[in-house]
């Protein structure tokens, strides 16, 4: 599958928990995640988010984040990456869940974008 999902949270356990939830409905989707700072504290880590993007087997990646600084860090990683990165300003869990379920169901990128639109809250 050429579409994947990256989760970026301020907390490692939130990222892990989101991953667990998403995998349940999308076992075949490339889902990677980053949570917390390098020291495992609350915050966002450039290195962890970059690693989550690099671990992706998909070429086009939908990225979901919990709070603003994770978004800014995603922006910076995205500028440095060759992959097609789509940072989605959707409700964090609902957006990621919707994207994963649709990718698992073989929906096309355009169709997924349409479904994500009403979930935009940020």
């Amino acid at each position: 599958m050429s579409l994947g999902v990256v989760i970026a949270s301020h907390v490692d356990k939130i990222a892990e928990g989101a991953y667990q939830l998403l995998k349940e409905s999308a076992p075949d989707v490339s889902i990677t995640y980053a949570g917390g700072t390098d020291d495992g504290e609350v915050g966002s880590s450039y290195e962890k988010i970059e690693a989550a993007v690099n671990q992706q087997t998909a070429e086009t990646i939908y990225c979901f984040y919990d709070l603003g600084s994770a978004k800014m860090t995603l922006d910076m990683v995205s500028e440095m990456s060759d992959k097609n990165i789509k940072i989605v300003d959707a409700a964090f869990i609902e957006g990621a869940y919707t994207a994963c379920a649709l990718i698992q169901g073989d929906y096309k990128e355009e169709e997924i974008d349409v479904q994500l639109k009403p979930l935009q809250v940020k």
Binding site: V42, S45, Y46, G68, S69
Partner: peptide, 15 residues
């Protein structure tokens, strides 16, 4: 700063 701050000020000062 980009790799170590952890909050919004990391990407902002970093940029």
């Amino acid at each position: 700063l980009i790799s170590k701050v952890g909050g919004a000020s990391g990407p902002l000062y970093g940029s």
